[in-house]
């Protein structure tokens, strides 16, 4: 089974899916990401699906699961790069992914997380509003 690599850029974890996802790979990615969020104290997760040519209900559910899971660990998830044909198909399949934030591309996704690319417009610090979460985090997370 192949594993999807997780890259760290500042306080953001970047997952760029470049392979045909089989179900075990999807499950492993969820666990790997949960682990990395806790170990790195990441504030955001970006899942880049630019290269993904189909999203079925299992893969779609992964996005929702990762988004909920990371939110519980005070990290925000953004799915970026969904192809138009994939979006059309997902809606017809019956999966609208209402709880998942999306952006058109990686750069806009980074900006959404307040981790803008230098020189690519405003890069404000992460929106404040994580009072309770931040308190809990300091005890649980390692150094970042």
């Amino acid at each position: 089974m192949e594993r999807v690599p997780i890259l760290k850029i500042g306080e953001v974890l970047l997952v760029s899916i470049q392979i045909d996802l089989q179900d075990q790979t999807v499950l492993a990615l969820q666990e790997d990401l949960a682990d990395r969020i806790v170990r790195t104290g990441a504030r955001g997760v970006i899942i880049d699906i630019t290269a993904v040519d189909i999203v079925d209900s299992f893969i779609g559910r992964m996005f929702a699961t990762i988004a909920s899971m990371s939110r519980l660990m005070d990290a925000e998830t953004v799915v970026v790069g969904m192809r138009p044909a994939v979006a059309i198909t997902l809606v017809e399949l019956g999966l609208s992914l209402g709880g998942v934030r999306t952006a058109l591309n990686l750069e806009m996704g980074m900006r959404l997380l307040g981790a803008g690319v230098p020189g690519a417009g405003g890069a404000p610090a992460r929106a404040n509003g994580s009072g309770g979460g931040a308190g809990g985090r300091s005890g649980a997370a390692g150094p970042r």
């Binding site: 040519d53 189909i54 079925d56 299992f58 192809r83 044909a85 059309i88 198909t89 399949l93």
Partner: peptide
């Protein structure tokens, strides 16, 4: 995917039938 492309289905229709096939294969 290969069969749908060879049959001349549009990209959206290819994506739909591949997605349906993925659900049914599972």
């Amino acid at each position: 995917r290969a069969a749908a492309a060879a049959a001349g289905l549009s990209l959206v229709d290819q994506t739909k039938i591949v997605t349906a096939a993925s659900e049914l294969a599972r």
